[in-house]
Amino acid sequence: MSNRKCRKDLLQWINAVSFAVVEAQLFLDTHPDDQEALAYFHEYSNLRNQALEEYAKYYGPLTIDTTKESCADRWSWINEPWPWQEGGC
């Protein structure tokens, strides 16, 4: 993302793109060789991973799989607001 999205927008984008990925996944479960659906899935799955990486870089890891950078030398996972706290995701 060239311009850096604010936390809320980035989270909204992650929600939307994650939903689309799951929808494509469910369709592919019954249509495994549908090329269009497969292309759609890979495209949005990549977008989702990029968005998660970006979120982790700027706002702290959202999921445990994106703690690579931020928790390299210290377990900074605990510095981020917990989901139930103000500012939590």
Binding site: A16, V17, F19, A20, F27, H31, A37, Y40
Partner: peptide, 14 residues
């Protein structure tokens, strides 16, 4: 049988 067509844009889909 469902076919892959008429896909919404992701924000609208959510």
């Amino acid at each position: 049988w469902q076919t892959w067509r008429d896909i919404y844009e992701v924000e609208k889909a959510l």
